[in-house]
C-alpha cells in the first residue's frame, strides 16, 4: 500500500523521531510505514491523517 507519509512529514519539516513522538508510536514504525514494509492499524492511519490534516484516502493509496 503506497502512502504519502514521508511527503507530509517533510512538508512539516519533522524528523521520523519527532513524528513518532507526536503520534505515540516508535520511530521504527514510521520508518517501516514510509518504506511500505508495514501497514498501520486503522487507529494509527486515522491518527496520522488527523495530524497531517488530510483524509486517510489521500494519505494511503489502496488502488495498487
Amino acid at each position: 500500500m503506497k502512502n504519502l507519509v514521508k511527503l507530509e512529514r517533510t512538508r512539516l519539516d519533522l524528523t521520523q523521531s519527532q513524528l513518532a513522538e507526536k503520534l505515540g508510536v516508535s520511530r521504527q514504525s514510521i520508518h517501516a510505514i514510509e518504506r511500505n514494509k508495514f501497514n498501520p492499524s486503522v487507529t494509527l492511519a486515522i491518527k496520522m491523517a488527523k495530524f497531517f490534516n488530510v483524509t486517510v484516502e489521500y494519505l494511503f493509496d489502496i488502488s495498487n
Partner: peptide, 12 residues
Amino acid sequence: KEKVEDDYINIL
C-alpha cells in the same frame, strides 16, 4: 517492555 510499545515492535 520497550520505551514505546506498538504493533510494529510486536511484529519485530
